[in-house]
């Protein structure tokens, strides 16, 4: 009887140790999966870049483009559109709504932007292309979206986009649309101009910002 109990006790200790080891291993798996959750973000970006999943466009330089052949047998229509997101009091539109080009050919268009506010404001344009599959083939050599744009009160600016649609574009594609969403990069400023969401993180009742209204 005593032996049996002793055995039982020893067996229990062995078990406890085994349980601890297993629990630690499982905790490690948990941590790894937490890391994996985070890793999904760069993985997704990499996949999007490769496959154009979310219409994020590529970037290239003039030399690479110059080395590419122009496919004169095909014509593709490229449309341009833009939206100044609420919170950025700017007028924003393409000066050319659409053009036709041959794949491989470098073209330039201009967007017009005007600051309607009475103070300096900085914005960031985010490009997106549809159909999404064309995004890897839509390459920008120069773009106002590469950097932030700061406009003085009332300033008007014509901003260029120089781009190429490479010849690897799927044969079925006839129309590509390039769209820009222009965001106010400063959250408080965006709030002041009625931006309701994207630039709104620190929104709390405590910081009182009854800013003078624009022009006030």
């Amino acid at each position: 009887m005593a032996d049996a109990m002793h055995d039982g006790k020893r067996q229990q200790d062995v078990r406890t140790a085994a349980n601890r080891r297993l629990a630690l291993k499982l905790a490690a798996v948990t941590l790894a999966m937490f890391g994996f959750g985070y890793a999904l973000s760069p993985m997704y970006d990499a996949m999007c870049k490769a496959l154009g999943i979310n219409g994020k466009t590529g970037r290239t330089d003039a030399q690479t483009v110059a080395a590419q052949p122009v496919d004169v047998t095909r014509t593709v229509t490229v449309e341009f559109t833009g939206l100044a997101i609420s919170g950025l009091p700017w007028e924003f539109k393409p000066l050319v709504k659409k053009l036709e080009l041959h794949p491989g050919e470098t073209r330039e268009v201009k967007y017009l932007v005007r600051n309607l506010a009475k103070e300096e404001i900085t914005g960031q344009a985010i490009p997106s292309v549809t159909p999404g599959e064309t995004a890897p083939h839509f390459k920008k050599i120069e773009c106002f979206c590469f950097t932030r744009q700061t406009l003085k009160p009332g300033e008007t600016r014509e901003m260029p986009v120089r781009f190429v649609v490479d010849a690897g574009l799927d044969k079925g594609v006839q129309t590509i649309t390039l769209s820009y969403s222009f965001f106010n990069i400063d959250k408080l400023s965006a709030q002041k101009y009625g931006g309701t969401s994207l630039a709104q993180a620190g929104e709390h009742a405590d910081h009182d910002h009854v800013h003078p209204a624009p022009g006030g």
């Binding site: 609420s86 709030q191 002041k192 931006g195 009742a205 209204a213």
Partner: peptide
């Protein structure tokens, strides 16, 4: 141009556009 006072849950959006 909207307004955010912080006194209310929502803020006044801009209607200029």
């Amino acid at each position: 141009h909207g307004r955010a006072t912080g006194k209310f849950g929502a803020q006044m959006p801009a209607f200029a556009a």
